[in-house]
């Protein structure tokens, strides 16, 4: 097991007057940690702080016991981290190979031959091997994201921080991503923010729900699912009183909360638990 230990200790961050994160704590050692939350919840701020790209206004973050806010720990932590930003962007005229090669140099792969071997390895891992000589501007959005994932894999980092790695990927690619994450989670600590609740439920060892900069839930996927236990219903028409409902393709409505008239209870999914949490601002739960 080569996974980094991650400890986030009461981290907070504000942009000027706007509070993005408040008193957030979590810890992980190995496995896939999924971070869920609505847009603007602070997920990206949290991941950027973990990846040492941004310094949190308050609190501490430790990677393998290294304090990422001071040198020389921060540089050492960066040797163990791979990071995919929410919107990966690259110089349009550069080739795929050159992009990853450049970042590999930044990650201290100084020997040319070893570095090129590693570049090809990570490109293969995301099925971009035969695109190595294409220019970035010729790539689709999904390919650009996969390129971003590829560079995050350089050097087999002990801690991977991936911000929305599945965005823009087609279902087949999502499946391959899921396999990749499962494999990586076996040997590293992988922190992923995503909206793919079903797939996250399948592969995560830990799930964290953030809304409005605070933690609403820390625990397992099963635990999050259980929150919605006996609170999910199928109703024949739009209900008035339920916390949340939406129309299904067959015309019925899936509701979470109190049972509307004429509804039948169904087994909850993790997404139900998640929706229950984020649409009830005064509730916080730890399972």
């Amino acid at each position: 097991m080569n996974a980094a230990s991650l400890r986030v200790d009461r981290v907070g961050h504000s942009y000027g007057k706007r509070v993005a994160l408040q008193d957030l704590s979590l810890s992980a050692l190995g496995g896939v940690v999924t971070v869920l939350g609505p847009n603007g919840a602070g997920k990206t701020t949290l991941l950027r702080s973990m990846a040492t790209v941004q310094r949190a206004s308050s609190g501490q973050i430790y990677v393998d016991g290294l304090d990422v806010s001071v040198e020389p720990d921060r540089t050492e932590a960066r040797r163990r981290i791979g990071y995919l930003p929410q919107e990966p962007r690259f110089a349009p005229r550069a080739t795929v190979f050159d992009i990853v090669d450049y970042l590999a140099i930044c990650k201290e792969h100084h020997d040319r031959r070893d570095r090129h071997r590693e570049v090809r390895r990570v490109l293969e891992a995301v099925q971009l091997g035969d695109r190595a000589d294409d220019r970035v501007r010729a790539l689709s959005g999904g390919m650009v994201r996969r390129l971003g994932i590829a560079q995050s894999l350089l050097g087999q980092p002990r801690l991977l921080v991936l911000d929305e790695p599945a965005a823009g990927l087609d279902p087949d690619q999502r499946l391959q991503l899921r396999d990749l994450l499962t494999t990586l989670g076996a040997t590293s600590t992988v922190v992923v923010s995503t909206d793919m609740t079903d797939e996250a439920a399948a592969i995560s060892s830990q799930v964290i729900v953030i809304a409005d900069g605070t933690t609403r839930f820390v625990g397992t996927a099963a635990g999050l699912t259980r929150l919605a236990g006996e609170r999910v219903w199928i109703a024949p028409q739009a209900p008035a009183r339920a916390t949340r409902s939406w129309r299904q393709p067959d015309g019925t409505y899936r509701c979470i909360g109190d049972p509307p008239p004429g509804s039948t209870m169904v087994e909850p999914t993790m997404e139900d638990g998640y929706l229950l949490l984020v649409s009830a601002p005064t509730e916080a739960a730890v399972a």
């Binding site: 962007r89 450049y102 970042l103 930044c106």
Partner: peptide, 18 residues
């Protein structure tokens, strides 16, 4: 200037050195 700046920052290569 550098579109990949976020990713470069997260590497051990010191920004100052670069």
């Amino acid at each position: 200037i550098d579109p990949a700046h976020d990713m470069t920052v997260a590497t051990p290569l010191s920004g100052f050195r670069l």
